[in-house]
Amino acid sequence: MEWNMSEQVKGSVLIAGGGIAGMQAALDAANSGFYVYLVERRAAIGGKMAQLDKTFPTNDCAM
């Protein structure tokens, strides 16, 4: 999709949800030169993955 870039384009991204997806998206956007607002409903980021004990198929610690 291409559209005309006006002067008002904002160099910021809102990311709603601070689980593993939101965290990765936030890091990539910020490291590419954009200001990120990472919004999370709970008192800490981490989401469902933080609740997992190990991850398959390597049995690495999820933390």
């Binding site: 999709m1 559209w3 870039m5 384009v9 904002k10 160099g11 910021s12 991204v13 593993i20 997806a21 939101g22 965290m23 990765q24 998206a25 936030a26 890091l27 990539d28 956007a29 910020a30 590419s32 030169g33 954009f34 200001y35």
Partner: peptide
């Protein structure tokens, strides 16, 4: 999920490329 997150960051910022580094 992680792949899609990097993809979403790339797609979202593609539209904003003219404003790269303007707010950081």
């Amino acid at each position: 999920t992680v792949m899609e997150a990097s993809a979403a960051a790339a797609d979202a910022t593609r539209l904003l490329r003219s404003a790269r580094n303007s707010l950081t």
